[in-house]
């Protein structure tokens, strides 16, 4: 069966949101000396989500 690009983007947005929620919940477990780096990695996850959402908007999803 052929893939539907809209479904593909929607699924990825849902998955990214789930990963961000899980990562936010884990933030308290990160050692203090690594917190700033983890926060940078977390920002990149949020940036990826924004890019996916922009893509969805451009694709009229």
């Amino acid at each position: 069966m052929e893939l539907d690009i809209r479904e593909k983007i929607k699924e990825e947005i849902a998955r990214q949101k789930e990963m961000i929620a899980k990562s936010a919940a884990n933030m308290s477990r990160v050692p203090d000396h690594l917190k700033a780096y983890q926060e940078k990695a977390f920002e990149l996850m949020q940036k990826e989500l924004r890019a996916l959402e922009d893509l969805a908007e451009r694709s009229n999803i």
């Binding site: 990160v30 690594l34 983890q38 940078k40 990695a41 977390f42 990149l44 996850m45």
Partner: peptide, 10 residues
């Protein structure tokens, strides 16, 4: 199983 990425190249 806590840290997000090993390497980030931005």
């Amino acid at each position: 199983n806590i840290l997000l990425n090993a390497f980030i190249l931005e």
